[in-house]
Nucleic acid binder design. Sequence first.
DNA 1: TTGAAAGCGCTAACAA
DNA 2: TTGTTAGCGCTTTCAA
Lengths: 356, 356
Amino acid sequence: MARRQDRAAGGTNGTPDGGKALKRKTTPTISDVAALAGVSTATVSKSLNGRDGISPTTRAKVVAAAEQLGFRSNALAQSLLSGRSYTVGLITNDSFGRFSIPVMLGAEDALQAGQIAVLLCDGRDDPIRERHYIRTLAARRVDGIMVTGRRADPRPPITLDFPIPVVYAMCESTDPRDASIVPDDEHGGTLAVEHLLATGRTSIGHVTGPSDFRAVRLRAAGAEHALRRAGLSLAGGGPLHGSWSEEWGRQAATILLRARGDLDAVFCGSDQIARGVADGLRAAGCAVPDDVALVGFDNWTVMTEASRPPLTTIDMNLPLVGRRAAETLLASIEGTATSGTELVPCQLVVRESTRV
Amino acid sequence: MARRQDRAAGGTNGTPDGGKALKRKTTPTISDVAALAGVSTATVSKSLNGRDGISPTTRAKVVAAAEQLGFRSNALAQSLLSGRSYTVGLITNDSFGRFSIPVMLGAEDALQAGQIAVLLCDGRDDPIRERHYIRTLAARRVDGIMVTGRRADPRPPITLDFPIPVVYAMCESTDPRDASIVPDDEHGGTLAVEHLLATGRTSIGHVTGPSDFRAVRLRAAGAEHALRRAGLSLAGGGPLHGSWSEEWGRQAATILLRARGDLDAVFCGSDQIARGVADGLRAAGCAVPDDVALVGFDNWTVMTEASRPPLTTIDMNLPLVGRRAAETLLASIEGTATSGTELVPCQLVVRESTRV
DNA sequence: TTGAAAGCGCTAACAA
DNA sequence: TTGTTAGCGCTTTCAA
């Protein structure tokens, strides 16, 4: 099956040299440093950790010795002593997809600034697997757990039989006492429609995903509020629900045009749908944005840029969601627990599809 | 900025109860279990780890005590003793994008089967950051490191000042003595063209990405080999290089049609390009697959399914790349080091765009 | 079959 | 200013 390119044998990096070996060079410990520097281990520890009560001379000697040996303090031993692993578990059920990754990146950034490492756990929507991971994380004495998901819809909280902080990012816990950080979808819907209104549109349709997504309901609600404040309502009588696909967008474009000859804007529940709508409108001889303006949702560049014309859209600030989640988790680890759901604001990104 | 939904305070899961606290319930240790079971810690250890030389009665007693206390062995302590952390570091420079994620998932799967946890490190193409991560991983005494990237192009090996196994997944190390696992792009190109030939096409063009990508050169080489074996050569005289975009695909379709009136197939270097080609052909009044058949590369569902018609494509088996990398790393950790580059075969996925 | 003791690598009292 | 000692939680001889 697999081909292997033939090449010289013998790895570079540290692959143990096959032979029974002479002096199997083992990682230097604090005692090695102490011995070399001619001091006690306690002195080495203090010197290297910047504790005071150490003479500059000694400190220099120790540092030199450590350097020479390539000494690197064993975090495992430190953790055992301090009772903190400086590690958090990241459980995701998005198989690290489009939504959870930006969240993760934001989180990882904030955590690593706090010197916290992240253990990866891909739950695959399998409760068994999730439980297994939780056991592992428990054994490794993580300082906290972050849970992430594909959908913003509330999910049952994870169950822990040991007391450590948990925060839900992107997916809300059904237990209101848990800390959750999610994008403010309703606000996103409002932003989109307000932008359309501001550019002079008045007959605005809404094409979106299945109504059993909370995000879908919230975005629609935000849109409708904004319209109501302007004394208007959705063209077509309400949101048009379908699948999260371009195909649905294309169909919906036809439906809307047929229903409302005066249609001059469409707000879509996703960029994918919006791209479909753009194609559908074009096919019907309708110009975007001249005849009909278009706003998507997600700011998924692959879609927004490939669409003709490029799409104005709503960005959920997912990295910020991740960052806030990490900060909340860190605070909780430090003892300042928070609870309840925090909404991260969305942001309008203007491109060709709504140019005036 | 952020809205906070008001809700009752007080977390569910383990957020330390604010107060100075009564008996701050601490995680039970092996001594707690020993005390409760009325035996020594050594006996507890042996009982729980299935060592023999323990009477069934005692074992049962210990197990019961452990259960009752919710005892979970401290992996940190075990690691300190065993010298193995059962953890590997995963360094990526793809910001966990489209390519490295499937690789990661495959790897994570294989590793977790081996009871190995994964520490996440997003290098962001920043060497400083990468070095920082390597220090962290060293301190945490990871058993090995896996390096992943966006491009298959060879990258300089990471530099370690301590001896642990490293494997490169998806991105090859420039040092041939390192172990690398990459998709067999050349094979992929061959598969694509052989499929087109098998379905009776003879005038086959190739539209692909920038030629400084090794994958681009390999895929083209594979395609040309297959053609040569059939006594043919690429329509258009050679590969058409451009950007990795739909836009380029649309342009290229026009170019190819103009150059070769008898064009009956196009093999594309990516699904994105292929989708553009599909649109370009359709716009030129050319039917896919009746007039011109189309094969993409990547099996990126978002593109293959949204394309009209859905695209036949080449799948790189990325999860398998990850799995093989993990297996190689595990073997290396166990002492069986490998070196050189392993090629993982690609696979043809047939859809509408090449129906006969 | 069980337990006492030593030690993995490190840090924090406390003494010197 | 430095060193001695104890101990984090666990496993493993070795002796009982």
